[in-house]
Simulated scan of single mutants.
Amino acid sequence: MTQSNESKYFDLHTTGIGYLNRIREVEVRKGKPFICVTVAALHGSSDDMEYSYIDCKVSGSEAERLVLLHSPEVSAGKKVLVAFKIGDIWADAFTYAKGEKQGKPGASLKGRLLFISWVKVDGETVYQAKPRDDQEAPQDDQAQPTDTAPQTPKAETPSAAVAEPDAYYAP
């Protein structure tokens, strides 16, 4: 039996539709800064949808371009809805540093934003990716919410001082 030098990976991809929030550049002590975004992913019935917030390091080059392009619109409070592919989702435990939940444990979802297949700003389609054979992100014909895009609550954001998250997700 010969052993190959080729590495094998197991991909865990999450696809869905969600709103962009908290776009920021993260500086690290050693290495190049990177872009992070919180995706408020929609799930549940379209009559009573819920949000799961996923903090993402933007990994795909086209995804990074799109996130940065629409950052001013997110900052201005516009609803920026995207169809996304997030890779390698995981949970990160932390302790709330302030607010009602100060001192209590919490958890946040983390991942890598790999791909954006379309973007809508205030309901208008402004970007549509070219079709790919392996594209699994939701198609534009799925139900689209019309309510206000959620914002990540400030009190719900983990504190670097208490939780000491790794530099990968430092605010």
Rank of each mutant, 00 (worst) to 15 (best):
residue 6 E to F: 14
residue 9 Y to Q: 12
residue 10 F to L: 14
residue 14 T to E: 08
residue 15 T to K: 00
residue 16 G to K: 03
residue 16 G to H: 03
residue 19 Y to R: 08
residue 20 L to M: 10
residue 22 R to W: 05
residue 24 R to Y: 03
residue 25 E to Q: 15
residue 27 E to S: 13
residue 27 E to I: 11
residue 27 E to M: 14
residue 31 G to R: 09
residue 31 G to C: 03
residue 33 P to L: 05
residue 36 C to D: 00
residue 37 V to A: 11
residue 38 T to H: 03
residue 39 V to H: 02
residue 39 V to W: 02
residue 41 A to T: 00
residue 41 A to K: 08
residue 44 G to A: 07
residue 48 D to M: 09
residue 49 M to C: 11
residue 50 E to Q: 12
residue 50 E to T: 10
residue 53 Y to L: 13
residue 54 I to A: 06
residue 58 V to H: 08
residue 59 S to Q: 12
residue 59 S to G: 13
residue 60 G to A: 07
residue 60 G to M: 03
residue 60 G to V: 12
residue 62 E to T: 14
residue 62 E to V: 14
residue 63 A to Y: 04
residue 64 E to Y: 03
residue 64 E to A: 15
residue 66 L to G: 00
residue 68 L to G: 01
residue 68 L to N: 02
residue 69 L to P: 07
residue 70 H to D: 03
residue 71 S to D: 12
residue 71 S to E: 15
residue 74 V to I: 15
residue 76 A to R: 13
residue 76 A to Y: 07
residue 78 K to P: 04
residue 79 K to I: 07
residue 82 V to R: 05
residue 82 V to M: 08
residue 82 V to A: 04
residue 88 D to T: 13
residue 89 I to M: 05
residue 91 A to G: 11
residue 94 F to A: 02
residue 94 F to Q: 04
residue 95 T to I: 15
residue 96 Y to R: 03
residue 96 Y to M: 14
residue 101 K to D: 14
residue 102 Q to I: 11
residue 103 G to I: 01
residue 103 G to M: 09
residue 106 G to N: 08
residue 111 G to K: 05
residue 111 G to Y: 00
residue 115 F to D: 01
residue 117 S to M: 00
residue 117 S to T: 04
residue 118 W to N: 03
residue 118 W to R: 09
residue 120 K to M: 09
residue 120 K to W: 10
residue 122 D to G: 02
residue 125 T to R: 10
residue 127 Y to V: 00
residue 127 Y to K: 04
residue 127 Y to T: 07
residue 131 P to Y: 05
residue 132 R to T: 10
residue 132 R to D: 06
residue 132 R to K: 04
residue 135 Q to Y: 00
residue 137 A to M: 05
residue 139 Q to Y: 10
residue 139 Q to K: 12
residue 141 D to H: 13
residue 144 Q to G: 01
residue 145 P to M: 01
residue 145 P to K: 06
residue 146 T to E: 12
residue 147 D to I: 09
residue 147 D to W: 10
residue 147 D to F: 05
residue 148 T to S: 13
residue 150 P to Y: 03
residue 150 P to V: 03
residue 151 Q to A: 11
residue 152 T to I: 10
residue 152 T to S: 06
residue 153 P to W: 01
residue 154 K to M: 05
residue 154 K to V: 01
residue 156 E to H: 14
residue 157 T to L: 09
residue 158 P to L: 06
residue 159 S to T: 01
residue 161 A to E: 13
residue 161 A to V: 07
residue 161 A to W: 02
residue 163 A to T: 14
residue 165 P to R: 03
residue 165 P to L: 07
residue 167 A to I: 06
residue 168 Y to R: 11
residue 170 A to H: 11
residue 170 A to R: 12
residue 170 A to I: 11
residue 171 P to N: 15
residue 171 P to L: 15
residue 171 P to R: 15
